[in-house]
Write a protein that binds this DNA or RNA. Structure first.
Lengths: 245, 245
DNA sequence: ACGATACGAGACCGTGCCGTATCGTAAATC
DNA sequence: GATTTACGATACGGCACGGTCTCGTATCGT
């Protein structure tokens, strides 16, 4: 109903003259346009003019703020519970310093989320079973180091109230991984390791591979994620539950 | 960090003299004791004395409030975003009326959540494949009528900041369904329809059955949940991905 | 009729947060 | 040295919410 997330301006705020459109605009305007590029083009030096005049921005501040947000989410805060004041305090910076870089809370969160670049999966070995296990194992490990899973849960909470935020996360983090997995499955079909009729819905196959661990990690935070989980999921999936042979 | 959920008193508040321990207690006391029975023992008539004196409580109010909460969550609100004033307004009741029944927001949410009694699954037919499909299909349908899935997502957001609330939901809603599914799988093993070595971890098997649909419904709210989803998940799972035969 | 209780509406107050502004200081260019 | 900008700290206004209270009305027992 009363969603606090209506307008979102993404990316750290550039210095005033370099981006006059990001800061204070005409009121009751904004809307769903919101410049989609949110690269961490932090202020200093982004303008055409080579060297800035005054004291340069401390690059460490961006880092501190991002770390603080992750730390707080990790510690159990909902995104909705995070306050700008709290973030600033946790990061050990002034509130004004935060607002100098991001116009509002949404922009900040969006930027922090995009800053989480998942380390690339290892190069596929070509052996289907091993590659699938590696993919699932990757999810398991990320869920264990629960920074990721805490953030995911927090994001999930925002799916409904802040679709922009979620879509951004989805496009940045989820899609990439999913693409790799689908490629893996396609190769498995080509090589005859997967029944070809299953190729009709790779999306479903994808969910069947990652769903179990994902569901356990996010929906059952108490459940264990034992070492051999990925292996057993993949083997059960490949062989099937029936004692067919 | 600053969790707004510290103490929780569950269940609709009984009329004053009937339950003097639920209302205002000594401050800085409460704690993790919180009477665990939260049945909707709504005020009137709950006391030993047969008939109450004044105007009886309107049973419709409890319903209206619960409906309002579900409606708002359904419409995209996070539990944290719900306000008592908003709930009262949405329900068309006075704020005082709400507080007359529940001592605080947590107690209200807890009660509403427990009020969602999932309609019992149909009696198992005895045919493993059909029963598994029915179980998965049940999840799919609940996710489609997204009241449930919206609530689930909102609950998930609270996992970290309000473990009490989550545990209550988990114990009430999740455990029951899971138990039925595990019984199903056990019978499948007994009847030889499932490879017996898989019986070593029925929990995992459980996740493999429900995980795909659950993950898709909660983690990918845009993804479709086609009619034949349950069937295909179960068949793929039973047969396996390999072209073993 | 009368007291008791519940009802919707809304005033009220304390608190916390958002976003801005100010202050004194630090680091850069001119 | 002067100017410009960033920094941490903090004060401020505005606002929404939680929770209490009051008011006028409705509905029950006695």
């Amino acid at each position: 109903m009363t969603s606090p997330y209506d307008t979102v301006a993404a990316g750290p705020q550039a210095r005033p003259e370099a981006a006059a459109d990001t800061g204070a605009e005409a009121p009751a305007d904004a809307g769903p346009d919101a410049a989609p590029d949110a690269g961490p083009d932090t202020g200093p030096g982004c303008g055409a003019s080579g060297a800035r005049r005054g004291r340069p921005r401390d690059a460490g501040v961006d880092q501190s703020v991002a770390e603080a947000v992750l730390r707080m989410v990790d510690a159990g805060a909902t995104l909705g519970e995070l306050s700008m004041g709290g973030i600033a305090r946790e990061a050990g910076v002034g509130k004004a310093t935060v607002y100098r870089r991001w116009p509002n809370k949404d922009a900040l969160l969006l930027d922090v989320i995009e800053r989480i670049d998942p380390p690339p999966l290892a190069q596929p070995s070509g052996v289907l079973r091993e590659d699938l296990i590696a993919a699932v194992e990757y999810i398991r490990r990320r869920s264990l180091a629960k920074r990721e899973s805490a953030l995911l849960r927090s994001m999930l909470a925002e799916v409904q109230s802040n679709t922009v935020l979620w879509r951004r996360y989805h496009d940045t983090v989820v899609t990439a991984r999913r693409g790799m997995l689908i490629a893996l499955l396609e190769r498995g079909i080509d090589s005859g390791e997967i029944r070809p009729e299953l190729g009709a819905d790779l999306d479903l196959l994808c969910d069947m591979v990652v769903g179990p661990v994902l569901a356990r990690a996010t929906l059952r935070p108490d459940a264990p994620l034992p070492d051999d989980l990925a292996e057993r999921v993949v083997d059960t999936l490949l062989t099937g539950m029936r004692p067919c042979r």
